[in-house]
Write a protein that binds this DNA or RNA. Sequence first.
DNA 1: GATGAATGAGTCTTCATTCAT
DNA 2: GATGAATGAAGACTCATTCAT
Lengths: 204, 204, 204, 204
Amino acid sequence: MKVADKHDKIIQAAIRVFARNGFFNSRIAEIAKEAHVADGTIYLYFNNKYDILITIFEEEMGKIIANVKQELAKISDPCEQLKKFALMHLSLMEEKRELAEVIQVELRQSSKFMKDYRNKKFVEYTNIIANILISGQEQGLFRKDVVPEIFKRSFFGALDEMSRFWVLSSNRKFSVKKAAEQISSYFLEGTITSAAKEKRSCSR
Amino acid sequence: MKVADKHDKIIQAAIRVFARNGFFNSRIAEIAKEAHVADGTIYLYFNNKYDILITIFEEEMGKIIANVKQELAKISDPCEQLKKFALMHLSLMEEKRELAEVIQVELRQSSKFMKDYRNKKFVEYTNIIANILISGQEQGLFRKDVVPEIFKRSFFGALDEMSRFWVLSSNRKFSVKKAAEQISSYFLEGTITSAAKEKRSCSR
Amino acid sequence: MKVADKHDKIIQAAIRVFARNGFFNSRIAEIAKEAHVADGTIYLYFNNKYDILITIFEEEMGKIIANVKQELAKISDPCEQLKKFALMHLSLMEEKRELAEVIQVELRQSSKFMKDYRNKKFVEYTNIIANILISGQEQGLFRKDVVPEIFKRSFFGALDEMSRFWVLSSNRKFSVKKAAEQISSYFLEGTITSAAKEKRSCSR
Amino acid sequence: MKVADKHDKIIQAAIRVFARNGFFNSRIAEIAKEAHVADGTIYLYFNNKYDILITIFEEEMGKIIANVKQELAKISDPCEQLKKFALMHLSLMEEKRELAEVIQVELRQSSKFMKDYRNKKFVEYTNIIANILISGQEQGLFRKDVVPEIFKRSFFGALDEMSRFWVLSSNRKFSVKKAAEQISSYFLEGTITSAAKEKRSCSR
DNA sequence: GATGAATGAGTCTTCATTCAT
DNA sequence: GATGAATGAAGACTCATTCAT
């Protein structure tokens, strides 16, 4: 077995275990068992328990960001990009429930985490939203008075809270598509310029 | 000292300590020291460490909900109510930073918490948003196709993520007022009916 | 309420509680509750938890010894005295089950107890047996080669183990009378002289 | 070191510590120190402190029972078997003072122990006595009216109380042999049939 | 590299005892 | 005398991490 394989086996096991119990209630021994490796083996690939959590975040967020950027590059219209972002985010959270739970819940758990570890991947991810907005403002699609820093946070927050709904509840009333459309529409219709509206850009 | 005083002293101390270290990294001994009581005294008022966290949430959220409802009752226009809600939420998170951090971060920490403990206060709080929307829809101010369950989650999520900004960063670029206005506007302008727009209801 | 009453209320409560849980698993708070007094009140009558156990033993054994001695004084024949002792011992253990359990089980629990606290009442009690034997030997009823120190211990042990049977089991196959007769007979028939047997003393 | 060795090291250490302090006054840390292992190591071999006590009883009583049964199998005469049993019991209690103390004192300590944990080994041990009696009755050596359930308890109780004498006192006036002979004789002479007596079976 | 037995520091919780009222 | 809230020392047990094999 290649080194990378074992590294990944541990990461995937840890995602499942962390999602199941939460970071603090998860045991290294449980992760080891889930990954079919010895307890000690984990320490050949990670410095400590906390390092596993960081790595999950770094690596998995890295993949997500790359994927999102790749898909958005295929779209030129900022309005459509925003809709696509919403749909991709919610779809991902639905598909990778366990990863979603770890990122959403565990990542915020300790202020230590968020303070000590300056969360570059997270900033990079939300900046995708900010950049769509700015690009749209430059094209005259979005109102100039919309503050990117506020917009990106509130848009991400809206999606994030919505996805927590899927993560935590077993039965859901709305499809990912429906939710993505609605959330996009609140923000799009709330931020486009009158000019854009007449040109029927960003219409639902 | 009255019993209620000691109960409250411990709660307030716990809020500070949990905000500082996170729930799992907080020690009962530290809370006791912060509250100027003996370790054992805490167990005269709470069943265990976890019970303190639940109590913080129940009691403090109870106060917040009561306060928000009281203020909103003074306003009849749903649009203004939504703006007020946003402002109150963000103001509160700014004023009671430590409580905000505990509610935001620690509350989500353990899926156990969110799954086992069916979070009634939380649902009650977000339902305030849903009710404003429904009331607005009945008055023909908001579009009928806006789904309350999605709206309440995304609106709350937007505010919540924004407030995390204040909780976690020490320097802020935007005032609470600015952020509240922007977020409200995205949602208001994104959800009002054409009729309402012409009547200049919900205008910024 | 007289002082003696409260002292006794606590003692009687402690007997019930110790019998129920064992000494180490009993809580001062539980004894206080059972005695309908405050926790602190117990310390007005006893030095500490251990002192309650000692006192139970001293006082209750004192009563038992006085009672047994009084009854035996009415009988002149050592054989009959031995039978009476056996019957009284087992009857007492049956009647005062809770006290019996405390004396039997808790008293032996800690070697500390048996070593530190030179158990005078216990010695006094078993010496009643030794004295019956010696008296019988002087009268030529019992064999001279029976060693009092061994006899008293084994006779007491036989009764004690038998009574544990009643203390610990809820259903019993034999009556106290039957058991007392049997045990007495083993020892009597095993220790009387040939001369006494011919004279039909100590016959069953 | 083999696993079995460490298990046994802990057991032997626990016997010494429990004998010294009693179960409730013994600390896991003290057992660990006595066994030259870390505190945590104990929990690799035992579920909890109480489990150690149970295991001591199960394992050590198992050895004793096997040994006693083996020796008694070499003897055919029930009278001699009873004498042998008494001698072996007292010898064992003398040789393995610490184990004896744990079994005798700690085992009875908590009614919980005796009630919850249906003491199979103990019943098995005393049943050896009952079986000797029954076998003797079948051979016409012992009186038919002797009740096995009473006999076994009183015989065991006599030996047990006698051995407590050795366990608890440092100086002893009688040899094990003397005590075993005396106790056996009380019961033998008190239970044999007239026929057996004439045949000089069971004579001292 | 891989293992998993061993380690021991760390912490929640209990509860006998005290003492201000 | 009586109370019972408060104390804080003490200890069973856990589990991340190490390291000899």
